[in-house]
Design a binder for these strands. Structure first.
Length: 819
RNA sequence: GCCUGGGUGGCGGAACUGGUAGACGCAAGGGACUUAAAAUCCCUCGAUCCUCGUGGUCGUACGGGUUCGAUUCCCGUCUCAGGCACCA
């Protein structure tokens, strides 16, 4: 303390000996990589191609979060390994840069979203470069660039021309604060996902994409792809295929039939009432005939004020009103049954109406109990005094021609009957809904259509694309709930491209999902101004070999992008039906408190700070070491210290390298074993154990007086995908000779040599560990038993008893069952 | 309520297709080096009991089961996280 100068000098000397200067080394190598073309994918190559993809980020104003790089570093390791394995690798990056935060900021400050987006991108780019990720920066894409969104509009127009884009008036989620329609997916907890304001339902003409036409193929083709099982399950459940029947019930008062979808037509004799969603069109037809129109109107209004989540919350009490005086007729029993409306039935699933079978459906049971509706048991086996009986292995009762059958057999028989009677038929139903594609926002791709008084909706000619976002001064949206664009009459008023008459531009813009539904195609040919990407480049690079991203995107983004890709396939523009061969996911990085990182919790860790203190290599290795890649893991800056020590230990191996030393047999085994294990663990994304393997190997090397060059080279190569800067420096200083680490081939191993020569075997008596012995690898049971029988503890254990059974698992255990 | 994934030392986490539970790292304690500190290196480190050993018992959320043997498989329960659209 008294003499800071000498203190610092001592410190500096020590640092020279024990630690490396990460700042200097990382700057040096990043500068070298920046000017070189190491990471650029070659457009044509004799090497096999490999396309590694991460989800491109939304460049938020908060900057990079320690969670982002987990996926990037993981795939960077894969990409680097592939390059060393001789592949021509495409590992691109870009920006999913349309989005509400920039627009909300613009509304508040008057600063153009483009300006703030540009700043945010610059910051993200700086942070990503600081981490030494091997992205091909020459292929960067930005969804807000007109040269990019031109093609987003172009793809939309093709969808429109094929009849897959249509306008429909449907109740949508309406954010009372943002004044925009939200997809159901964007409503979280009954409030707007982005602004937190309450969401109500409001009728609005929306552009829709007919993704449901692709439901079957989106489901079927999951068989062909290598996705993690849980991801496939999620896709499958989201698409939600179910087999059942559409049945028609007469409603004499309005002289029409009411269709319902049911998976349980076997219970038809127990259908004692029907329930319509409050938005069901039959209500309008019946409103003049019912005895209680005011009550019904009031209920509809109440339902509209609730979000879908509130409506579907099972814990809440069921509500509803009867359409008094407008009953239906049960086609099987001929009985007159009441029709109710209730918000537990959703207009968006099935036909928006159900036949209620209270005895055998839990929700219907609750509803019937609450409103004292008739409950008729038609399947025996449960106790309908207490609860609904929903099993399929009961026997049919009170069910006419179905009596005596098992419920599961009665399903088909019931449908046969309906088909014969012409009152219904077998159908398949999907949970998947069409995609609401309209947003009443400024900061999105304009939808390139005009509405002509004579011709209706007409596409803007391709050669006029992109339809640019107009320059504006203020970003306040129209209070009518239209986008800001609607207020710009100069922009809106236009000429019909077909008849030349008066027309108006569409003022809705596209959702953020649009740009991200095809960005991976653009990476194949990012600067093309003649096509979204050339066929040759698409054929070369697609499909993506490995796509890693968060679980939160494994339903929507994955499904939407698969849908667009399938559409492009149908248009003959790409040559494979699926865009991604393999899809994996990573776990979230939580705050040190184990909670999700967020500003409000104050537990956000900034990568700049960590990189500044420990360096990028340490940051990268720690992100891989902190826990299983696919599970959530809490951040621990204390834990970073351990990784920092490890890299310094690896650095210090350099001082022991001896070019003349030849690896011993044991050392050769260690080399091969480590190559095998590290390689396997990268391929299976068990990065944390790959790192621990490298730590063990490093400690091994440090235990020798002289480290053979081959061992050192192996360490550098295996560690380089994780810690590219420090290994590059170690390599240059020690191996040198103009050989560049990045261009070294990934080493191969001999599985025979990777085996240990001697192994520790567990000796068990009756399945309990007695002791361990050291034996040669591959020793036979007879030889093992000879050794085991001489062990004093074993002798004592079997004294006076007999060995009933011997279980020998080679190289692992021998178990004596003694009685 | 439904779907998916978890629950292992003080902490983060390992454990191949059922075969020595706790690899690797953090923290902690002890020691070496140092005038001192930092850094570094070495040792100990699941709980508990005793006769302190080359010992006994318990231990992978909980309760059962299968097995020579279960963190791993089966049944049931609790609990945490994420997702959700009452799937009729």
């Amino acid at each position: 303390m008294s003499d800071p100068d000498s203190h610092n000098n001592i410190r500096k000397k020590r640092d020279m000996a024990d630690t490396y200067d990460f700042q200097e080394i990382e700057q040096k190598w990043q500068a070298r990589w920046e000017t070189g073309t190491y990471y650029q994918a070659e457009s044509s190559s004799s090497k096999p191609k490999y396309y590694a993809l991460i989800e491109f980020p939304y460049p938020s104003s908060e900057g990079l979060h320690v969670g982002h790089p987990r996926s990037y570093v993981g795939m960077d390791i894969v990409a680097r390994k592939r390059r060393m394995e001789g592949y021509n690798v495409l590992f691109p990056i870009g920006w999913d840069a349309f989005g509400l935060p920039a627009e909300n900021y613009a509304i508040k400050t008057g600063i153009h979203p483009r300006v703030i987006t540009r700043q945010n991108i610059a910051n993200f780019r700086r942070q990503l470069k600081m981490l030494g990720l091997s992205f091909d920066w020459s292929r960067e894409v930005d969804t807000t660039d007109p040269n990019y969104y031109k093609w987003t509009q172009w793809i939309f127009l093709r969808l429109f021309k094929r009849g897959l884009a249509y306008k429909a008036e449907i109740p949508i989620n309406w954010c009372t604060s943002c004044k925009v329609g939200l997809a159901n997916e964007e409503v979280v907890g009954g409030v707007c996902e982005r602004c937190g304001a309450p969401v109500v339902r409001k009728a609005k003409k929306q552009w829709m994409l007919a993704i449901t036409k692709y439901a079957e193929r989106l489901l079927e083709d999951l068989r062909e792809v290598d996705y993690l099982e849980k991801i496939k399950t999620q896709q499958t459940n989201w698409i939600g295929k179910s087999y059942g029947a559409e049945l028609r019930f007469e409603v004499p008062a309005v002289n029409r039939t009411l269709s319902v979808f049911t998976t349980r037509p076997d219970t038809i004799f127990g259908a004692t009432y029907m329930v319509l969603s409050p938005e069901h069109p039959l209500i309008e037809e019946a409103i003049g005939k019912v005895e209680n129109p005011d009550e019904i109107r009031a209920y509809q209004k109440l339902a509209a004020s609730k979000s879908e989540l509130e409506r579907t919350d099972l814990a809440k009490d069921k509500t509803g009103v009867e359409l008094k005086g407008v009953p239906a007729i049960n086609p099987a029993t001929g009985e007159t049954i009441p029709i109710w409306i209730s918000d537990y039935v959703l207009i968006s699933y099935g036909t928006g109406a159900i036949m209620a079978v209270p005895a055998h459906d839990t929700r219907d049971y609750e509803f019937a109990r609450k409103f004292n509706l008739k409950i008729v048991e038609v399947i025996s086996g449960g106790d309908i005094e207490k609860e609904a009986y929903t099993e399929l292995d009961g026997v049919m009762v009170n069910s006419g021609f179905l009596n005596g059958m098992l419920a599961k057999d009665a399903i088909s028989k019931a449908i046969d009957w309906f088909e014969r009677e012409g009152k219904g038929e077998r159908t398949v139903n999907y949970k998947l809904r069409d995609w609401v594609f309209s947003r009443q926002r400024y900061w999105g791709e304009p939808i390139p259509l005009v509405e002509c008084e004579k011709c209706g909706w007409v596409p803007i000619p391709e050669e006029e694309l992109p339809v640019l976002l107009p320059e504006v001064e203020s970003f306040i949206p129209s209070s009518e709930g239209e986008s800001l664009l609607a207020t710009l009459s100069d922009w809106v008023d236009t000429m019909c491209p077909v008849c030349g008459g008066k027309a108006k531009k569409e003022t809705d813009t596209m959702p953020q999902w649009a740009g991200s539904s095809w960005y991976f195609h653009r990476y194949a040919d990012p600067h093309n101004d003649k096509a979204f990407a050339s066929r040759a480049n698409l054929d070369y690079w697609m499909p993506v070999d490995w796509y890693n991203g968060g679980m939160e995107h494994t339903t929507l983004h994955l499904l939407y992008s698969r849908f667009w890709h399938k559409f492009l396939f149908d248009e003959g523009l790409v040559s494979t039906p699926e865009p991604y061969i393999k899809r994996t996911s990573h776990g979230m990085i939580l705050g040190a408190d184990g909670e999700k990182m967020s500003k409000s919790r104050g537990n956000v860790v900034n990568p700049d700070e960590i990189v500044g203190r420990f360096g990028a290599d340490t940051f990268r290795v720690y992100e891989m070491f902190m826990g299983a890649f696919d599970l959530a893991a809490p951040w621990s800056t204390e834990g970073v210290v351990g990784v920092s020590r490890f890299l310094n230990r690896a650095w210090s191996v350099m001082a022991k390298v001896d070019g003349n030393a030849v690896p011993t047999q044991e050392q050769t085994r260690a080399i091969h074993r480590t190559i095998m294990r590290v390689g396997e663990r990268i391929e299976t994304m068990k990065f944390n154990t790959a790192v621990s393997e490298l730590m063990t190997f490093t400690s091994d090397l440090l235990s020798y007086d002289k480290v053979p060059m081959e061992m050192f080279r192996t360490l550098c190569i295996l560690l380089s995908p994780f810690a590219p800067h420090v290994t590059a420096e170690m390599w240059e200083r020690t191996v040198g000779e103009g050989r560049v680490l990045l261009e070294e081939p990934w080493p191969s191993f001999d599985p025979e040599l990777a085996k240990a020569q001697t192994v520790t075997m567990a000796v068990q008596i009756n399945g309990k560990l007695s002791e361990t012995i050291s034996i040669d690898w591959g020793m036979t049971q007879d030889d093992v038993l000879k050794i085991v029988h001489d062990l004093p503890k074993v002798k004592r254990a079997i004294d006076g008893k007999s060995v009933k059974k011997v279980i020998h698992v080679p190289n692992k255990i021998v178990n004596l069952v003694v009685k």
